[in-house]
Amino acid sequence: MNKPATPSLVNGPLIQVIRLSKHYSNGHGVIPVLRGVNLEVHPGEMIAVTGPSGSGKSSLLFILGLLQPASSGNYQFLGQDVLHLSRADQAEFRRRRVGFVFQNCDLFENSTVYENLEFPLVYAMVERQERPARIAAALEMVGLAHRMSHPANRLSGGERQRVAVARALVNQPRVILADEPTGQLDRQNGHKIMDHFEKIVALGETALIVVTHDSQVAERCHRVFSLEDGILYEK
């Protein structure tokens, strides 16, 4: 499969990471996870990060989503240093700028599809009257508008992951951080998810960073990086 064309980079980078490091300390010493990672992501870009298990891919994703602090380095989002935000500002950043998709299709099991998508809007204090339209639009993007009032625990695996993507989209984030989004899906459903991501990114506002083991997923991204021994290489 041919690589898609990289979008024009006329606007400044969405994400700029310079010499980012992360290490964990235990009783025996320091374990480095990320070593001097540099990365630049522009709106409308799809980036894949591959690498062996335990290489720090998920840690990089969590740091980019401010779910985890970095040990050192510089991380700017739309020109703003975000590594040193307060806890409340970090939550605000996740609310407004980031959408997460996890491997396990983590939906709230006892809730409907609508209720799952409503949570990010509740935290973003979106008016209640505005919510149905935004939820419908997000579900429309993944082709699940007809499942709006369906209980989450009665969806198929593919549908669950599409709902997770819609939930990541509902607050109109600038970047989607996806951790093995197709890891538990069959090939057909995996392709569908990537189709949806492409559609979303093609609008030009949002970027996608996807951590994956799947070479076919990586091939559909504009750029592919490999993380080995904590060092990020562009392939």
Binding site: L67, A88, A91, R94, R96, F100, F108, F119
Partner: peptide, 9 residues
């Protein structure tokens, strides 16, 4: 998950 969605403490 809720914290990832932006829920504050």
């Amino acid at each position: 998950l809720k914290k990832a969605m932006g829920a504050e403490d």
